[in-house]
Structures are given as C-alpha cells and as structure tokens.
Nucleic acid binder design. Structure first.
Lengths: 206, 206
DNA sequence: TAGGACGCTATACCTATGTATAGCGAGGCG
DNA sequence: CGCCTCGCTATACATAGGTATAGCGTCCTA
C-alpha cells in the first residue's frame, strides 16, 4: 500500500526526511543521530540542519509527513474496522516510525485521528446492535484504537510470540487469521460481562 | 496491588533500582541519566556504577525485578483473562516501566510470560467453544497479549482519547467499562468473519 | 588495637552528538 | 561579465553523560 519512492528521485530534503523516518523507526528518536541520518541520505550533516533547523524540527516534519500519508491511506481504505486491517501492509515502511512515535509518546495527533476514525465506525456499527452501549463511543474508540495499534507498536514481540516473520506472506497470513479469530470470539460471554458490569456498579475494586 | 515501599526502608541498592525504574518509566531508557537516578535515590552517581557496573546492567536488574514482581502478582491474581484486568491497578507504579520496556523492544521475557499465561487461559476457554479454532493457540495468545498490553503501553494516548485521568478512580471505572464493552462485543459478526476467512483462503491480498 | 572489607563520595576523563559558523560552487539575473 | 542567491560541505565548538579511579569513613574481626 505504501511504498518508499526511489531515493534517486527525491530532493535532498525529502531524502533526509525518509532517512530520518527510517533511522528513528529503527533506533528510536534518541538513538538516531543526525550524522547517521545524513549518511543514509547521502548528504552532509550540516545540510540536515540547513533544511530543518534542529533534530526536534526534523522529527516534527516527519510526523507531519506521516499524518499526511495516513490520511491519504484512510481515503483509499475506506471505512473498514481498524482492527481488521493488516498492520504490516497498511503503513508499509513507515510502520516502524509510527510504532516509535506512538510508543515514545509524541504523535498524539496520529492517535487522535485513529480514535476519530474508530468513532465514526462505531457510530455506524452501533445502529444495528441490540443492546445499547452504556459507555461513550469515544472511550470505546480510544480503547480499540490502542488495541489495533498494539500490533504495530509491539510488532517485534508479536512476531517472536508467533514464531514467524511478519514481513513474510506466511507471517501476514498467520497474523490475519489470528486477528480474525480474536475479533470474532469475544473474551467474555454475555453472562460474564453482565456479572462484571454488576460488580462495577456495586462498588470499585481492583 | 503493587505499592512502592517506603524509600527510607530500602537499602541503597534497592533505592537506586526503584529510582531507575521510575526514571526509565518516565523518560525512557535513553533519556534517563545515571546522575538523575542517583539524585532521586539520594546517592552519588558513582554508587550506581559501584552496585550495578553499567547502565545496561542496571536496566537488566530492573527487568529482573519486574519479572519477579509480575510472577508474584500472577499467583495472586489467578487465571483471569488478561484483557479484563485493570491495567493501571495491576502493575501499580511499575506500569510505566513495563510500558517502556515493551515499547522499546527489550523485556522479551516479560511479554513471553504473558503469552504463556494467555495460552493457558485459551486452552481452558477453548474447551467449551463450539467451533474449533483453526489458528494455533500461541499466535492467538500473542495477539491478545499485545492487545491487553496496549492499554499499558499506550496509556497516555488512551488517557487523552478518553479525556480522563487513568490514575483517578473515575478514570479506572470508565476504562474498565470500555474494556468490558469491547471484550464482550466482537468487531466482526460470524458471517463477516467467515467471509474474511474465505477471502484469506482464496488468495493473499492486502 | 591494627587491619581489611565494604559502602560510598568526589573528581576526572573521554566520547558522542547536537549545534553553530564560514565558505564554496553552480545557476540565474542584471 | 559581475554579482547574488542558495543548496551544500567542512570544520569547529560546547556539553551532556557514561565510565573510570582514588580515597574516605565505618564496622567487623583477629
């Protein structure tokens, strides 16, 4: 879905941004160095500063580019439930950067955008639901956005746990099937849920 | 469930470890400094090295302590489904460290332990399930472990999305209710799931 | 009481890395 | 042709922070 453009075709500025996203995605913001990014981009470290001013500002430019990419993707993908999308394929090479962005605490707009998407989806899905949900849609959307994104953020762990390479077709197939199963079999039966809700209504405990 | 002991009662070594877990939890491993940790622990920076040798080794000691705490907690909590536990209460003050540990890629043993716990739970839950699951239990366990942990890892985002303070009783109540709803209402209906599975069987697409 | 082990501090060192500045060369423009 | 702008490089600077070393006081032991 998302594929990285040929570095040859890009302006130096864009190459730096791509390199930054790769480095930050791979090592995190702190461990990514301007010198390393510059080398990958094939430019001098000074040029990075020349174009972006500071490391922080470079990150912000990356964030902005990520958001733009995400919004474009959302248009392509339509209104499918977030949790059923293929986490690897959707964000393509940017997924590592996305994971870092979320995990390291910045990139709030990105998460918030996903909450909004989820909210819209819920609004539609709730129409043909027998029992009226008693929690507000935004909270549910936030929780399920987190759950959907967890596969991206914790990809390495999931990968190890499943014993496959998530980049391989087999890995993605296995992941999608597992997701499918989890999303179509609730952890709680209606009775258990009712009991738990009653317990919550009775009084707060751990 | 987990409460931090009074710093006064701890040996310097333990105080350093607690301070490290707090600093790393708050700022991440890279941004946490030995000097800062030492100050919080009320000791000289040199003592940190004296006791732990290096920053890496200090982190490993923290990891070890976290695993020990987790295993003790698991005994207390019993065999409840991971996703229904209160993410804030369970790990107490260590949850920020846990979040960093998972997000920054180390702490594999911790995740793996949770997969194992989930696997055991699934093995039991599958016995009274009408349709036989066609994905292996470990994959499902890995996926749902990731989803359960996402609320810890992405706590700040969820907090912002829900518009509450997850440390407050109200926040926890709201979170638990949202969790309850999400876990008792599958995103996919059996028909949708069947269709999706059929699509997967037909051939790989995004 | 002498001596050593140990917990701990103070200080110094050194590297990595973000940032700042000076200058170069090519292309556009008068 | 002369000059200026601008993308870009090379170099230097400053500092944060991990690591290393020397030494001090206290308690335990012979």
């Amino acid at each position: 879905m998302t594929t990285a453009p040929d570095p040859e075709d890009l302006t130096a500025r864009a190459r730096i941004r791509e390199a930054a996203m790769r480095h930050i995605g791979e090592h995190g913001f702190e461990r990514a160095t301007i010198r390393g990014i510059a080398e990958t981009a094939g430019v001098s470290p000074g040029l990075v500063r020349h174009h972006f001013g500071s490391k922080q500002a470079l990150r912000e430019a990356c964030d902005e580019h990520l958001v733009k990419t995400m919004l474009r993707l959302h248009d392509e993908v339509g209104n499918r439930p977030l949790g059923t999308l293929n986490p690897v394929a959707v964000m393509g090479p940017y997924r590592h950067y996305l994971a870092r962005a979320l995990a390291e605490g910045w990139a709030a707009p990105i998460f918030d955008e996903m909450v909004r998407i989820g909210e819209r989806w819920y609004a539609e899905a709730d129409r043909d639901r027998p029992d009226p949900p008693d929690v507000d849609p935004k909270s549910r959307a936030a929780v399920s956005a987190a759950m959907a994104l967890s596969l991206t953020v914790l990809a390495r762990h999931v990968e190890r746990g499943m014993g496959v390479d998530l980049d391989s077709p087999q890995g993605q197939d296995k992941l999608l099937r597992a997701l499918l199963d989890v999303h179509s079999h609730p952890i709680l039966t209606p009775e258990q849920a009712a009991a738990a809700r009653a317990a919550l209504d009775a009084g707060p405990t751990s």
